[in-house]
């Protein structure tokens, strides 16, 4: 299914529509955006199995549960998750694969869901941040994030957890550099990186100790 969603030459449909949309906006003309044509009024191509402008069936596994949906070809995985399936733990920040906030695991591989069409995950297993816990029990990494204060505003947190979960699943002890490499695509504007690295290392290497600040308190009685 995913093969159908690509234009020849590696241009994605979404990318193509974006380009056209931007061009018409800049020109300020009345030309209709091909992406916005009403499905009812447009004539769908008479091709079996082809993905056009009408919604097509999509099946995949989301956080362990099978999902069946009718999805337009242009819809990104991120839009499907957030708008149609209410998986809002997956965040939209840049919408062009530059920040990692929308990361999900697709068959265990961390991917920017804004850079995939929904139909790309047909038949796949998709795990969002909401699927990292076992029921009510948070994963060891999620607990370590809380313990090490690996989050401030929390908007990058889901993506950080997805990238680090994929790294931890490779197994074995880790170095700081390996963790930094794994989260190099995840931007955090609050600057929480050192604590994220601490949290991941604590899970990988069993280092429970928290980073300490040197606190020079007022000495009673003077000195």
């Amino acid at each position: 299914m995913s093969d159908h969603s690509k234009q020849p030459g590696g241009v994605t449909r979404r990318g193509l529509f974006r380009t056209l949309g931007a061009a018409t906006l800049v020109a300020g003309c009345v030309k209709q955006d091909p992406g916005s044509e009403n499905p009812e009024r447009s004539e769908a191509p008479e091709l079996d199995d082809a993905l056009g402008l009408t919604p097509a069936p999509l099946e995949f596994v989301l956080d362990g549960q099978p999902v069946q949906a009718e999805v337009e070809a242009r819809t990104t995985l991120l839009e499907l998750l957030r708008l149609d399936l209410d998986r809002t733990g997956t965040k939209v920040v840049c919408d062009r694969g530059a920040c990692g906030a929308c990361m999900v695991l697709v068959d265990g591989v961390p991917r920017n869901s804004c850079m995939m069409l929904a139909h790309d995950v047909g038949g796949s297993e998709v795990t969002t941040v909401a699927g990292l816990a076992e029921g009510e029990q948070l994963s060891a990494l999620q607990l370590a994030f809380i313990e090490h204060d690996a989050l401030q505003c929390g908007f990058c947190t889901s993506g950080m957890l997805i990238s680090s979960t994929a790294l931890l699943r490779e197994g074995g002890p880790l170095t700081r550099g390996q963790v930094e490499d794994a989260i190099a695509g995840n931007l955090c504007r609050c600057g929480t990186y050192p604590h994220v690295v601490d949290a991941v290392l604590a899970v990988a290497n069993g280092e429970g100790g928290r980073r300490q600040t040197e606190l020079l308190q007022v000495k009673k009685g003077g000195a």
Binding site: T88, G89, K91, L138, F145, I146, D149, L151, G154, L161
Partner: peptide, 23 residues
């Protein structure tokens, strides 16, 4: 004391609803 933040669980589980997420 280094008390872990009390809304940490909501943020690491994706359950925290930001303005962007309100529907």
């Amino acid at each position: 004391e280094p008390v872990p933040r009390i809304d940490g669980q909501l943020k690491v589980s994706g359950a925290a609803r930001y303005t962007h997420d309100v529907a």
